[in-house]
Amino acid sequence: MKKLCISLVAVTLVFMLAVGAFAADKTYKMAFMPGITDAFYFTMEKGAQAKAKELGVELIVGEYPKSWGPEAQVPILEALVARGDIDLLFTAPTSTEALIPVLKKVHDSGIPVITVDTYLGDGDYNKESNYNFPLAYIGTDNFAGGMVVAEQLAKMIGEKGKVMVENTNPDVSSVQGREKGFVEGMKKFPGIEVVAIEYCLDNQEKAQAQVAAVLQKHPDLAGVFGVNIFSAQGAYRAIVNAGLTGAVKVATWDATEDLINALRKGEVDLVLAQKPAEIGSLAVEWGYKFLKDGTPIPDKKQVPGFFVFTKENVDAPDSQQYIYAK
């Protein structure tokens, strides 16, 4: 009997060691579903790929949607999840509401979800709600960034005059946060009036036309804030085409090479850069910790900072790391 017990213990130990070795050797598969085809998400993917390589994670990237919105993103997302071998998904939901049932279904199927850049609902995943299932939101504090842009632009125009916001989507958390932060920030300057808020739906040509129309209505416009890549690029080109470079100050969001070059030429006056590579890296890192050890993400939120480019620092060696990849 004693020999039998010893044998059983030995077998159990061997089994446990084998299971432990299997767990240690397991290669996790994570999927990244971008929001749209642009330099911001390309840069996020690069950061995610670098961290995945470091941790031995296999990163599968969904097809980049050609336009922004659930109608473009959801079919690609569903096809990505249908592979059946995904351990965790991180994605930028293209609507605060429309993506809730879609991502809840993914979660309920046993695939943990992290939202990056944009969030569901109001982004508070700690409170009781129908959208509190993601492990975390990892992205910029867009409201704070909007306030920073407001303060910088206010100084550029002498704290008086008319300004406008060229936004993109009314139901996306990131750009709404930027708009609200900007409007709130401008309340500190009684001499400044926000005369227009337009939505281009991520169409650069539409943004350009909207800013041109506001210039017609308000020829004394002093400043423009373009809240993302498409709205910003359309906004500054409208100012250039109107021959008002320098007279109308242009503050933009997202450090694409196009916007950085425009800053160098004086066609743009400020560029706020997010840190998309860090966002992607954090998504993989925290996803790996959760899958491997069940480690929760603090406060269900990780918020990298941002960097503000001006003409004075745009060519500084330390600034180059914040320019987005192609």
Rank of each mutant, 00 (worst) to 15 (best):
P170F: 07
S174I: 06
Q176S: 05
K180T: 12
G181A: 09
G181N: 06
V183F: 02
V183S: 07
E184H: 02
E184Y: 03
G185S: 12
G185V: 12
M186L: 15
M186D: 01
K187F: 04
K188C: 13
P190T: 09
P190A: 14
P190E: 13
P190H: 06
G191M: 10
I192C: 04
E193L: 11
E193W: 01
E193S: 13
V194Q: 12
A196S: 15
A196M: 12
I197R: 11
I197W: 00
Y199P: 02
Y199I: 11
Y199V: 09
D202F: 07
N203W: 03
N203M: 13
Q204A: 13
E205K: 05
E205N: 04
K206T: 15
A207F: 07
Q208T: 12
Q208K: 14
A209K: 11
V211I: 11
A212F: 02
A212W: 02
A212E: 15
A213R: 11
L215T: 02
L215E: 10
Q216N: 15
Q216D: 12
K217Q: 15
K217T: 14
H218S: 06
H218T: 14
D220M: 12
D220T: 08
D220A: 08
D220I: 09
L221S: 08
A222K: 14
A222W: 00
G223S: 02
G226Y: 00
V227N: 09
N228T: 04
I229Y: 00
I229V: 12
F230K: 02
F230A: 06
F230T: 03
A232S: 14
A232K: 00
Q233G: 02
G234M: 04
G234N: 02
A235K: 09
A235F: 05
A235R: 09
Y236R: 05
R237E: 14
A238D: 08
A238V: 07
V240R: 08
V240F: 01
N241W: 01
A242T: 06
A242I: 12
G243D: 06
G243M: 11
G243Q: 11
G243I: 10
T245I: 12
T245F: 00
G246M: 13
A247T: 14
A247I: 05
A247D: 10
A247M: 11
V248S: 04
V248C: 06
K249G: 01
K249R: 12
K249I: 03
K249S: 05
V250R: 00
A251N: 09
A251D: 07
T252M: 04
W253C: 06
W253Y: 10
W253R: 03
A255E: 04
A255Y: 04
A255L: 08
A255Q: 06
A255V: 05
A255I: 01
T256V: 05
T256W: 00
E257F: 03
E257Q: 08
D258N: 04
D258W: 00
L259I: 07
I260K: 04
I260R: 09
I260E: 10
N261M: 07
N261H: 00
A262C: 09
A262M: 10
A262K: 03
A262G: 03
R264G: 01
G266N: 05
G266M: 13
E267A: 13
E267V: 06
V268Q: 10
D269I: 01
L270S: 05
L272G: 03
A273H: 02
K275G: 06
P276N: 09
A277N: 07
A277S: 11
A277V: 01
I279F: 01
G280P: 08
S281G: 14
S281Y: 12
S281R: 15
S281A: 15
L282N: 14
L282S: 14
